[in-house]
Amino acid sequence: MAQTPGPQQVYSRITGTGSYLPPKRVSNQQLAQQLAENGVETSHEWIVERTGIHARYFAEPDVPSSELGLHASRKALEAAGRTADEIDLIIVATSTPDMVFPSTASILQHKLGTQGCPAFDVQAVCSGFIYALTVADAMIRAGTAQRALVVGAEVFSRILDFQDRTTCVLFGDGAGAVVLEASERPGILASDIHADGQYRDILCVPGNVSGGGVIGSPLLHMDGQAVFKLAVGLLDKAARAALDKAGLALQDIDWLVPHQANIRIMQSTARKLHVPSERIVVTVDEHGNTSAASIPLALDHAVRSGQIQPGQNVLMEGVGGGFTWGAVVARM
Rank of each mutant, 00 (worst) to 15 (best):
G187E: 02
D164R: 06
F171Q: 01
Y199N: 06
A177W: 10
L180Q: 08
S191D: 09
I193L: 14
D173E: 09
A182H: 10
I193V: 15
E181H: 06
R158A: 10
A190E: 13
I188W: 10
S191A: 10
D201S: 13
D173G: 07
D196Q: 05
Y199L: 09
I202E: 02
A177I: 05
D173W: 11
R200S: 12
I188F: 09
A182R: 15
L203E: 06
F162Y: 15
G174E: 09
L203G: 08
L170W: 07
A190P: 08
A195H: 06
G176P: 07
R158P: 03
Q163A: 12
E184M: 07
F162R: 08
V179I: 15
V179S: 06
P186Q: 14
V178R: 02
T167S: 12
I193F: 07
Q198D: 10
C168V: 11
T167H: 04
G172K: 04
D201F: 01
D164V: 13
T167D: 02
Q163T: 14
Y199D: 03
L180V: 10
E184Q: 13
E181N: 04
G197A: 03
A177G: 05
T166K: 07
E184W: 00
P186F: 01
R185H: 12
A195L: 11
R200F: 06
I159V: 15
L180K: 08
A190Q: 08
E184V: 14
Q163E: 12
S183I: 12
I159K: 03
D161R: 04
L160D: 12
S183Y: 02
G176H: 02
R165P: 14
T167G: 07
I202D: 02
C168N: 11
D173S: 09
H194S: 03
D196W: 01
E181T: 15
R158V: 06
V179C: 12
I202K: 02
Q198Y: 06
V169S: 00
A182P: 00
D164W: 03
E184T: 15
V169I: 15
F162S: 04
L160P: 08
G197K: 01
L203I: 13
D196P: 04
A190S: 14
D196S: 01
A190L: 12
D192T: 00
G187W: 05
D164A: 03
L160F: 00
T166G: 04
C168E: 12
L170K: 04
S183N: 13
A175V: 06
D201C: 00
T166D: 15
I193E: 05
L189P: 01
F171P: 07
V178T: 08
S183Q: 05
D201T: 15
A177M: 02
L160S: 05
F171H: 07
R158G: 03
G174K: 05
P186E: 15
L160T: 09
A190N: 10
F162I: 12
S183F: 04
D196R: 00
D164T: 12
Q198G: 00
D173V: 09
F162T: 14
A190I: 09
D192Y: 05
T166M: 01
L189F: 06
V169M: 02
Q163Y: 08
R158E: 08
Q163D: 11
V169E: 02
Y199A: 09
C168L: 10
I193S: 04
A195F: 05
F162W: 13
I193Y: 03
R200Y: 09
D201V: 10
Q163K: 14
A195T: 15
T166I: 01
D161W: 06
T167C: 04
D164P: 14
H194A: 10
